[in-house]
Design a protein around this nucleic acid. Sequence first.
DNA 1: GACGTTGACGATACCGAGTCTCACTCAGTA
DNA 2: TACTGAGTGAGACTCGGTATCGTCAACGTC
Lengths: 146, 146
Amino acid sequence: MPDASTIVTVLDRAGYRLTEPRRVVAGLIAGREGHFTAADLVDDARERRLDVGRATIFRALELFTELSAVERVDLPSGEHAYVECEPIHHHHVICSQCARTTEVEACGMPAVAREVGKATGFKIQSHRLELFGICPDCQAANSRRG
Amino acid sequence: MPDASTIVTVLDRAGYRLTEPRRVVAGLIAGREGHFTAADLVDDARERRLDVGRATIFRALELFTELSAVERVDLPSGEHAYVECEPIHHHHVICSQCARTTEVEACGMPAVAREVGKATGFKIQSHRLELFGICPDCQAANSRRG
DNA sequence: GACGTTGACGATACCGAGTCTCACTCAGTA
DNA sequence: TACTGAGTGAGACTCGGTATCGTCAACGTC
Ligand SMILES: [Zn+2]
Ligand SMILES: [Zn+2]
Ligand SMILES: [Zn+2]
Ligand SMILES: [Zn+2]
């Protein structure tokens, strides 16, 4: 359930101007299901005859990322995609068929990180975890289709 | 301890031609400490007056990746880097200061994946885990330097 | 060792993601 | 309502990566 007003609210709270282009980009993101690229938004905007510059879309994405309203995920293909999400530590489970994503909070990673730190001597600062699989909907669709 | 001959051996076993450019790229990789980008190798080659085309370096990296002699890691900056590594499931701990990497085998992820699968209904197929931190050497250097 | 096949090479053109510049505009303020 | 700087958009630019295509050389065969 993406929601444009959520992003707008975050913007406002952080003291950024609530401009029309930013609202538009927030709306485009809200209209997306699953992950999307900057290019996707550019296409969406052109299709809907919404007048937003390409540079502005990139700038908005950068800003939203900084405010943790969206997060960048690196797909196995190497593409840089984005997903709208909550501003708390979490990870994404990504459907490799329909691109829909789900957030997972309890990642169990602190334990792993601690263990790895002990084994390697590294002082672990951060981690990235992305899980890829098939979502329930796609599983159902697949089995129905034989 | 990177080793050019390791990559060459893998190439040979997989039935690919052992060409001079491929040996050169393997050598460049062997001469690297920590992660590197395609552009890094291009620069290295030019510096050492080794005649390898840019396209060839990209092709070699692609091939080596396919053969699991190197692996691509996505840095937090968004850069696509590579590390030489063993062809078994593992993850990388990456020093955010000197770029050196260490492989970690026991990732404890199967349990996490299973749990996530149960919680979300996804059929988990694969995962990517990258850990970032400060390596022992850099820690020592840092504290010495005050 | 010479031959022929064909996978690999390299120069170059090309594409597309992302950034930069700069003149202009408009949101928020006094 | 005038001011001011954050924000915008057109377009040039950079750079990672790919496609094309004529040439070349690795390697199996004889
Ligand atoms: Zn799906
Ligand atoms: Zn985590
Ligand atoms: Zn280090
Ligand atoms: Zn793992």
